[in-house]
Amino acid sequence: MQNQTKGLANAELWGGIAWLALGLFVTWQGWTQGLGVLSEPGSGFAVFWCGVIMSGLSATIVATAIRQGGPPLKSLWSETRWQKVLLVMGLLLLFGFFFEQIGFIPSSLVLLLVLMRFIDPVPWWQAITVSFGAVLGVWFLLAKFLKIQLPAGVLAPLLG
């Protein structure tokens, strides 16, 4: 990350702008919520002032970025396997959508097997042994021993 840029690809600049947008949004939210009076500050009081502080701080970050430059956006992802990161994120979201309906055991098994086989592939026998062992072990430990609720999903009739 030695190369610095002052141009539009400046990562610091975009980071700052993103936070600035959030800061302004929060300020606006606080304002609409109502600031109240000093002897009884309203719900938006702290939200508003935090928003103002956020905007101020991100403005200084933007200003510094413009003056001093920063690493180009591309350099942050050069020589990385960003596709894998996206893949894992996507899998986790997908998992979240189906977790309750399908149940802990089948959905976790699928998640583990896919992660083990497609990110940095391990041999099938390893993936299967480890994922089955881990999922069933965790399920037994939590649901049976610690009595913690996990969704049984489609296996509900079998798990009783």
Binding site: F95, S108, L111, L112, L115, I119, V138, Q149
Partner: peptide
């Protein structure tokens, strides 16, 4: 690590889910 990280993720999900039995929390974590 290729074997370890899926397990860590699973533990994270289970831990986050179990405190409120809420899938919403899993999304928050992601």
């Amino acid at each position: 690590y290729p074997l370890l990280f899926p397990l860590i993720l699973m533990f994270c999900i289970v831990g986050v889910f179990s405190s409120n039995a809420a899938v919403f929390d899993v999304f928050v974590m992601v």
